[in-house]
Design a protein around this nucleic acid. Structure first.
Length: 576
DNA sequence: GCCGTTTTCGGCCCGACTGTTTTCAGTCG
């Protein structure tokens, strides 16, 4: 279901992992990793490119280009197949456990025959790792904890993957004769950060063509159920898709029902009962007469319940029904409200695309301002220097004006050091239009130290935005343990915006933290943290998350017109 | 395996932290 680029990227990454595990040339593994990343982030669909054109992608040379071209024709890559035959896939999956890399994975496989995450947990609990060289008690503890982190996402997939699959399914089903309406519902429509399974809804008079079509879609691995009202399949990447076909007259009621959340549905059903009505996926009915009084659209159903239409992202039973009744439903921020991006990278540090390509792509997206914020020197591996930063500033200034209607800002993403300081002194920092500051190291300091560190970063007058404030990575790294209320208070006091990082692996701050921060009076920046042209599309996930946090345009600084934004940036860091 | 060139092979983001070990390997960003 994935796009060809992602498909190929996953395959190359898998090969890189297998090379690493089998102790192959580390530089070869690195080369495959770089090619995977380059292809994953490449803007054109690689299935439209031949071997020659593939070689124009940076870090893709003759060997990989030929392999990819052959794969796109034949559907297999022999080298990967051979590597798979030597090392079970479960061994590779062990590497998904934080703190467990290729060397430990191979040791576990070779000495104990462990080739799955559950088997590893069992082995640790049976104390079978005790005699293994290089595995002490702390390592066991870290692995067990890592498994917990990994499994906390419980088989749920991230928003971007779910959205991509859903879009493909909806496109396929919409093309079928007799399709009156088709969309996704469920937690994807509510934009939860992870999605357990996809709910697809079709309005049509006959269901069979849609049910059949679903089972025949590419990347469908198995059919779990096949009926007239509901069909369920599982994709090759393990995502379950439930399709329901409803009569067009029930569309609105069904959409509400299958969008959820369950708690929201219970809340509005209770309201129906109090009005002597009954709400189901088929419609809103008079309890006594059984007469249908609304069902065709969501608006109709909500209206007959005495409510305005409630955006799906608010339907979590967090007080949205009460707010709606008071007429105080927030007018939440939308994709169209986003005027700029204040956190992006280029290939000067770890981005994939050049400054020019990123800027052109931002202009195509209709942004009114765009900040380039490459990494600062303390993140040593990025090899940033004062000279490079200044040269980039000249390049940014020179490019400004290339796209009428889009203003370029030169910024940086600073590293918040263990004490809360950042890379450059005040004088140098003053030269940037916008400074994002983020934690990139020392994630496991004490709660007090982390809190002080983030508060101090907020108090730095040159820091405008705290990037990915909790540093969590879904399924990989837990949020840092800081007193977030203290951080939120400091951010509000100093006018430092907190980022809503839109990358689907981060979504940081998350909805619940946004709600808390907003109560402190914090302002937010919804940024993509784009490392490639394609990443610029991630804004919608950040916007969805912001909606779930009840944010309006007044809360989000990059929905503001440029003059207001610049005034705000000028005043940041001073206590008001 | 890629890149760049000093065109035919040498260098490849580099440093810090952790845990295990007793001088360093593995993992991470």
């Amino acid at each position: 279901m994935a796009r060809p680029n992602d498909d190929v990227a996953a395959l190359l990454q898998e090969y890189a992992d297998l090379v690493q595990i089998s102790g192959g040339d580390a530089f070869k593994a690195r080369a495959y990793e770089k090619a995977a990343r380059a292809i994953g982030g490449h803007h054109t669909d690689v299935s439209t490119l031949d071997a020659r054109a593939l070689r124009d992608i940076p870090n893709v040379g003759r060997s990989i280009a030929d392999k990819v071209a052959a794969y796109l024709t034949t559907g297999t890559m022999p080298e990967v197949e051979q590597a798979r035959a030597r090392i079970p896939d479960g061994v590779r999956r062990l590497m998904a456990i934080p703190t467990l890399g290729p060397k430990k994975a191979l040791t576990l496989y070779e000495t104990l025959g462990i080739s799955s995450v559950p088997a590893l947990r069992e082995a640790i609990e049976a104390e079978r790792l005790r005699d293994l060289k290089g595995f002490g008690p702390k390592t066991e503890e870290n692995i067990l904890h890592g498994i917990d982190v990994l499994q906390a996402s419980g088989g749920r997939v991230r928003l971007a993957q779910a959205a991509e699959t859903a879009e493909a399914v909806v496109a396929a089903l919409t093309a079928i004769d007799g399709c009156e309406r088709c969309t996704w519902a469920g937690s994807l429509r509510r934009m939860r950060e992870t999605v357990g399974d996809l709910d697809i809804l079709v309005a049509a008079r006959r269901s069979a063509p849609f049910m059949d079509a679903l089972t025949r879609l590419p990347h469908v691995a198995e059919t779990l159920a096949h009926g007239t009202k509901k069909t369920s399949v599982r994709t090759t990447d393990g995502l379950q898709i439930d399709l329901r076909v409803v009569p067009p007259g029930s569309w609105g009621a069904a959409l509400i029902y299958f969008t959820g959340s369950k708690a929201h549905n219970i809340r509005i059903r209770e309201r129906a009962v109090r009005h002597k009505l009954k709400l189901s996926e088929y419609g809103l009915f008079h309890t006594e007469t059984g007469r249908k009084i609304a069902a065709r659209t969501e608006e109709d159903v909500y209206r007959r319940l005495g409510l305005p239409w409630i955006p799906p992202t608010l339907r979590e039973d967090r007080g949205e029904v009460a707010a709606a009744l008071r007429g105080e439903l927030p007018v939440t921020v939308t994709d169209a409200d986003i005027r700029g991006d204040l956190h992006t990278h280029t290939d000067l540090t770890d981005g994939l695309a050049s400054l020019e390509d990123m800027v052109d792509a931002a202009a195509r997206r209709g942004l009114e301002y765009y900040a380039v914020t490459d990494h600062a020197p303390d993140l040593v591996m990025q090899r940033m220097t004062d000279e490079k930063a200044l040269a980039q500033r000249d390049a940014v200034r020179a490019l400004d004006g290339r796209h009428r209607g889009m203003r370029l800002l030169h910024g940086t993403e600073l590293n918040i050091d263990p004490d809360g300081g950042v890379d450059w002194d005040a004088e140098f920092l003053a030269g940037f239009d916008v400074c994002v500051a983020s934690v990139h190291s020392h994630f496991r300091q004490s709660r007090d130290a982390l809190t002080r560190r983030l508060v101090r970063a907020c108090e730095n007058p040159h820091v405008h935005i705290i990037g990915h404030p909790t540093t969590r990575i879904l399924g990989k790294r837990e949020p840092v343990d800081a007193d977030l209320d203290a951080v939120f208070a400091a951010a509000a006091r100093t006018g430092t915006a907190l980022e809503i990082n839109s990358h689907p692996n981060r979504l940081d701050l998350n909805d619940e933290n946004i709600l808390r921060a907003k109560r402190h009076g914090v302002k937010f920046a919804i940024d993509t943290d784009a490392h490639s042209v394609r990443d610029l599309e991630y804004h919608r996930f950040g916007v969805g998350t912001a909606q779930r946090g009840w944010l309006t345009t007044d809360d989000v600084i990059n929905t503001w017109p440029l003059p207001r934004l610049l005034r705000h940036l000028d005043g940041t860091g001073t206590t008001r």
